[in-house]
Design a protein around this nucleic acid. Structure first.
Lengths: 146, 146
DNA sequence: CAGTATCCCTCAAGATACTG
DNA sequence: CAGTATCTTGAGGGATACTG
């Protein structure tokens, strides 16, 4: 994929280039959900081992995941989210909320992301201005770099 | 890409399958930014025409874009965001804010999404519980479908 | 202008066998 | 268990010529 210059200064384009392939966000999703070992991801995703190894390596290179010794003292290592990776949480929630709203039929079975204490789903996540007013796309504009 | 059953009930996985390819979100981004005609997208993205035609067709099939007669009365048609497409705005903002924070060096040139009135950037968009408290990933869990 | 039709090529992805 | 090595396939993507 060959992006024109314009896109190199666009954070959206860079983000898509970094985590916009078909596996990255699913790996990150599972990391948020407690997956840490190679086998965890492999079982949950059902992805071929070589592909998984490659994607994990890339995510480590990008600084989204980090390797550390397994917490249980076994000889292996674990993949954990870095701060950069943890900051993808809003993106996961945005994907999930859009998917819930538009890709499932009424009453169709689906997993849900709920608050631990109450069991309630999260509030709809919407962009807001600095003073807390919901900002729809008509209220904003893209300012090109100087 | 062959997803295991688990993923078919996960809204994140479905969302990635729908708009997780390398062009969809860039097309949607440009639609939010005023692109409407085939040539608009082609010039902005620099993508091959056959690929663009295919992606636009897919987005229309998915109900994210719709075709309507051009507003200027010309013989051609325009691609406009449907409600389903407009609901991708938080996802675009999530991509952008993560990209801004983690994929640009300090002071590096980048485009910015600002409020029309004030010129100020939007507030950081964070998941919240129903009562408005910021919810980080440790505060939630994924509840599997029955 | 807005696509379609071809051709070509690379890489992602899957399957599977193997190794420390 | 956590990968690597190898092979094969197919889809995604690019370039370009053509058409209503």
């Amino acid at each position: 994929m060959k992006l024109p210059q314009e896109n190199e200064t666009c954070p959206v384009a860079r983000a898509v280039a970094a985590v916009g392939d078909r596996w990255a966000m699913l790996i990150v999703r599972d990391a948020f959900d407690g997956a840490a070992r190679f086998g965890d991801f492999q079982r949950r995703l059902g992805v071929a081992r070589n592909i998984l190894a490659d994607r994990l390596r890339t995510l480590v290179e990008l600084g989204i995941l980090a390797l550390r010794p397994a917490a249980d003292g076994s000889a292996y290592q674990e993949y954990v989210l870095t701060e950069k990776g943890a900051d993808l949480f809003p993106l996961i929630v945005a994907l999930r909320q859009w998917g819930e709203r538009h890709l499932f039929a009424e009453g169709e079975a689906r997993s849900a992301l709920v608050e631990k204490g109450t069991g309630l789903p999260l509030a709809a996540m919407l962009p807001r201005t600095q003073d807390g007013v919901v900002a729809d796309s008509a209220a904003v504009l893209v300012r090109k770099p100087a």
